[in-house]
Nucleic acid binder design. Structure first.
Lengths: 223, 223
DNA sequence: GCTAAATTTGTCGGATATGATAAATAATAA
DNA sequence: TTATTATTTATCATATCCGACAAATTTAGC
């Protein structure tokens, strides 16, 4: 079993960013997306943004101080703008360059979404080390991924690969005794009501201690 | 009481980004930071990055395909580079432009941090509507802020201002009955073991129902 | 359809960025 | 120190960006 053991159901439910079926690839996906773009992409961004605001090239020129012809050429990728002109454009449009470049400037922020979970909601997903139930799977592009998990593993040997990602994890023990194993720390025993917040960029794995399986509520950051 | 009611202790513990004592200003802080920079700042960024990697201008030229003299002038803000050259530089340095511009390219990502909370850990902070205990307050710059709260309010009238921020909130009921009030939805009753994930950009407030105060575990996204 | 206005795209001169090479400065060694 | 080398900055020719205005295209009204 590998790192996705207590994570692959989550992966299934966030398809766009889950390249390898590993939950924490979601963040990787974000990073990759924001990093990959060229002058044309940026031009398209700008064009889309201008259209969505229903501005003409002239309006643009007036607001930003960059000539209409220049904006036109930038939009069509005919040449690659100077940082200075990009700044003027961003300033005139009241957005920051980062979002202009990363292509998030035109995204509408989700508003008022809500997803309720009953005590036993969520399709169960079994692995050899735990049973996962992803909470609020209907909401996409969440910043946090809440999961309720029953940890069935009793020994770290049950894990072939330990989990690792560039995310952060918060874990709260609902019942039983959970042992958090980490490459950087001694095993940590957590009882009911206890919790831990840790960087997932260090390898880690979970096991239960005692007769009953530990039940945990945990969230992993997605960006 | 205002929006920070069940959030102001959190604010206290993330001083840099908590301008107005409102928890979700953390996000605002991030945004503001990433938006403010000019060509010179970018040049300084680049210079710092080059130095930290112990590269000469020639090395740079070799790796990026941008001439040493050009890089030198960019670093000193003598002119504003083209998006194309910025791309070449970013590519050669194996970073994405966004982080180069936003100034995060040279930051070291926290590694292997960990913070454990006992069942009753965290200094209590009383407000007129609830008792908050911020979990893992010793970790700074977290992507999620975990809080354990006892909701003492019985009626929405106890709130003067409802909470609102550009964050996302996950809430899990540990005991009692919590009622989630929202400007967009009918009041939602949540019993023990039930949970909800919602966008905090719509005004909301929490109350307890029944004789005992509801005990909830909740996390709010910070970026 | 046509006409007129609005909007976008092309042209060209001037401004600015970039690259090759030289000059200047800083670092290193004897 | 001086000599030597490494590194950065300045010079200048060339390529590219940018702005003003003209040409072409699209849109709107009839």
């Amino acid at each position: 079993m590998e790192k996705s053991k207590h994570q692959d159901e989550a992966a299934e439910l966030q398809p766009t960013s889950m390249i390898q079926g590993v939950l924490t690839q979601s963040e990787l996906g974000e990073v990759e997306r924001s990093g990959s773009f060229d002058a044309i992409a940026m031009g398209e961004q700008l064009h889309a943004l201008r259209k969505s605001r229903k501005l003409t090239l002239q309006d643009m020129a007036r607001q930003t101080g960059v000539s209409a012809s220049a904006v036109s050429k930038i939009e069509r990728g005919e040449f690659s703008p100077t940082l200075g002109t990009m700044q003027r454009i961003a300033e005139g449009l009241k957005i920051d360059i980062v979002s202009l470049l990363s292509g998030t400037s035109n995204e509408v922020q989700p508003y008022g979404r809500r997803s309720v979970n009953s005590a036993d909601s969520g399709r169960q997903h079994l692995t050899s080390t735990c049973v996962n139930r992803l909470l609020s799977p209907d909401l996409r592009e969440k910043r946090m991924l809440p999961v309720r998990t029953t940890v069935t593993a009793r020994h770290v040997d049950d894990y072939i690969d330990w989990a690792r990602s560039d995310s952060e994890i918060f874990l709260f023990v609902l019942s039983g005794i959970l042992v958090l194993h980490s490459r950087a720390y001694e095993p940590l025993r957590l009882k009911m009501g206890e919790s831990v917040y840790y960087d997932a960029n260090i390898q880690h794995a979970w096991t239960s201690e005692g007769d009953t399986d530990a039940e945990v509520l945990w969230l992993i950051s997605t960006r």
